[in-house]
Design a protein around this nucleic acid. Structure first.
Lengths: 220, 220
DNA sequence: AATAATTTTTAGACAAGTCTAAATTATTTT
DNA sequence: AAAATAATTTAGACTTGTCTAAAAATTATT
């Protein structure tokens, strides 16, 4: 139906739109998919002809309903595949993205539905990002940045903000993985670092840089 | 490393070479991948430049060692994915091929090794075709055409010759699926049809056309 | 409001892969 | 062995997606 490349553009634009709310400009797209502005102009003309987005010269783009649908479907596929790679094939947290980036373009509605069922209809991928449903519904999660937590508060590690391999490897090395219980025992007013306890057992120190990239579901 | 298209050509040539033993000509390749002879000429020039096959104008082609390696790797991927689709996602026998045709081009050695392990290192795909190993070794199977069987002989359905969706659906409808026990109870000298018993329970009549497309492992 | 800086678009070229139609080469028939 | 037929290759064009360099439009600065 839609090409590999078209899907990538739509996904990239969707993600930019999600973050910034204003209409998305050419340079931002070029940056996010590592290509040149001239190439972006060419492609958004094509996507505009196909009614996947609204485009006015020099004014940026906005996805149409159909464009958004395709983007969400691609995100759904990506996150389902990431879940498969992590929970069934034992890929590490940081290794799933690159392979899923390829798998997300396989064309078969049946495949995705069956994969979803096989995985037990997961709601979140291995990074804690929500997996859109068949009709594009996204379950809003009430995760809070760890850096917002006060001393004494507790929760469960549920997602990350930074998705870079470097960060994910760092977390894994320090056992800061999804599902772990976490409690704040100290917080420094000086460098904003915090002392935490994992699963009521291990104490460790986290920099602010780490804490502000971890999402936690608050518990009593 | 190699493109989607290059892999498809190499796989097609490998399969033709497997069947016919002589050097493969342009038209045969064009027919097998549903393209035009002119396109084939262009591509085999390219593959020849890359040392994936030996090509002499008007004389046909032959895979090099590296070309064969790539072909076998692609076949391995295809058959592992078919196995996954059938045994884990419950795809029907005849539906696995088209999706596997896409999945076989995903680039990740780690993925294939982990998939292989996840599936329990299967030796045959859902059609009874052998799955090449990591180094391209193919386990030769001693399957015999059902049409060669004599009255009284027994075996286990282990593969098919015809891979068409139409044939596979026919088999499924008649419970002639992999693993079933089969015994020949009658054979007609007139139309070469046979009467068989499945799993010591159900009797049915098979046309010669069906029997000569089923592979059976003989048992005592 | 004019100039400078930035962003975006256009123009033209390139690579991969495909195609049709015409020209070559090989094979078969007589 | 010549003629007819079939197979293969070449030439040139097209599509998708990309790029660089230059031109045009927009935004920011003074």
């Amino acid at each position: 139906m839609y090409s590999f490349t078209e899907e990538n553009y739509l996904k990239a634009i969707y993600k930019l739109q999600e973050q910034s709310d204003v209409s998305i400009n050419t340079n931002a797209i070029a940056l996010s998919i590592q290509t040149k502005a001239a190439s972006v102009t060419d492609m958004i003309k094509k996507l505009s002809d196909k009614k996947l987005l609204k485009y006015e010269k020099y004014k940026g783009v906005e996805l149409t309903k159909e464009g958004k649908r395709v983007a969400l479907e691609t995100v759904r596929k990506h996150r389902l595949w990431e879940t498969f790679l992590h929970s069934k094939l034992n890929f590490t947290w940081d290794a799933v993205h690159d392979v899923a980036e390829q798998l997300e373009h396989i064309q078969s509605a049946e495949l995705i539905d069956k994969l979803d069922e096989f995985l037990g209809f997961p709601t979140h991928d291995p990074h804690g990002d929500p997996i859109p449903g068949r009709n594009g519904e996204i379950q809003q999660s009430n995760f809070i940045l760890l850096s917002e937590f006060k001393v004494g508060e507790k929760g469960i590690i549920s997602g990350v903000v930074n998705h870079s391999s470097l960060f994910l490897k760092h977390l894994e090395k320090n056992q800061l993985t999804l599902g772990r219980k976490i409690k704040i025992t100290e917080a420094s007013a000086f460098d904003l670092s915090m002392q935490i306890v994992l699963d009521d057992k291990n104490t460790q120190q986290l920099s602010h840089e780490v804490a502000r990239n971890i999402l936690v579901k608050k518990t009593k």
